[in-house]
């Protein structure tokens, strides 16, 4: 008997091994997502539709997931997901994207979907760089970090995307790293069940492009770094900016109950029909 990894029942065998580099955090994100799906009792992905843009993370669902998926333009996955969710409100619509795709070129759509509280899940893998194009500066690249397009050090402070989602008024926002597999699985389960916009940032290792340039020796080195530099949100509240300078604040940042966009839109249809 050959025992197979649990995730393989949700994956297209013909595309394995994946195109991701050895040690890439995206495989861990796939595992956490599919473990959450399994624990929620789904034996296949028929209740899900996946949208993604351009970049390494966008390749998570397309072509790996044995599911309906749409691999869209750079930055537009959330906009496409809007159309999909409105027409198929009974499906779980999940967007996978990297920091460049979601928080760079696509941040306008992200903020507005969060503001409308559209009932979709957005999982942003944050590897601090545009990995597919060789490692350029991204909106989340740490201050003073060296990239291809910040060869003298990054002079921009990274964007805290979770805070942006909070300000936009979404139902749910969280941040974990690929080290935090157990809380990440639990958080993904909550996000899938949530009737509102759910955003999860997963700090993820890119050992080939970002890690190598930043001086990490292996994928595990990066996981260890994530572990040692993570601070739970409760603890971070009592820490200064200086103390938090090179830390990842992790945990559930936003969890509020409010009506989602498709529910609100149903009310619009009801109002229009009463008038007739």
């Amino acid at each position: 008997m050959i025992l197979k990894h649990f995730a393989r029942k949700y994956l297209r065998e013909e595309v394995l091994p994946s195109t991701f580099c050895p040690g890439c955090g995206l495989g861990i994100i796939i595992n956490c997502f599919l473990k959450a799906v399994e624990e929620l009792g789904y034996s296949n992905l028929n209740d899900f539709i996946f949208c993604s843009g351009i970049g390494c993370t966008a390749w998570i669902p397309s072509p790996h997931f044995k599911a309906d998926s749409i691999h869209t333009l750079h930055g537009r996955a959330v906009a496409v997901a809007f159309g999909v969710k409105m027409v198929r409100p009974e499906h779980h619509v999940v967007v996978f994207g990297g920091d460049g795709d979601i928080a760079g070129i696509g941040i306008g759509h992200l903020i507005h979907a969060a503001k409308r509280n559209l009932e979709i899940v957005v999982i942003m893998a944050n590897n601090f760089t545009y990995a597919m194009t060789g490692g350029q500066l991204s909106p989340t690249t740490p201050f003073e970090s060296l990239t291809l397009t910040s060869p003298y050090g990054n002079i921009e402070k990274p964007l805290d995307v979770v805070k942006v989602i909070d300000a936009a008024g979404a139902s749910f926002a969280a941040r974990w790293t690929t080290y935090h597999i157990i809380p990440l699985i639990r958080t993904i389960k909550t996000a899938i069940k949530k009737n509102g916009f759910s955003f999860i940032e997963v700090v993820s290792q890119c050992p080939t492009i970002y890690g190598r340039r930043a001086g990490f020796k292996s994928a595990y080195d990066m996981l260890k770094y994530f572990k040692e530099h993570s601070v739970p949100i409760e603890k971070a509240k009592n820490m200064s900016d200086e103390e938090l300078k090179d830390k990842f604040v992790v945990g559930i940042f936003v969890d509020r109950e409010k009506l989602g966009f498709t529910s609100l839109y149903k009310q619009v249809i009801n109002k229009a029909r009463v008038k007739l």
Binding site: I49, I70, T72, R76, V80, F82, G83, M86, V87, R88
Partner: peptide, 9 residues
């Protein structure tokens, strides 16, 4: 892009 998503849905 949302039109594209809606059409595919």
């Amino acid at each position: 892009n949302s039109v594209i998503g809606a059409s595919w849905a």
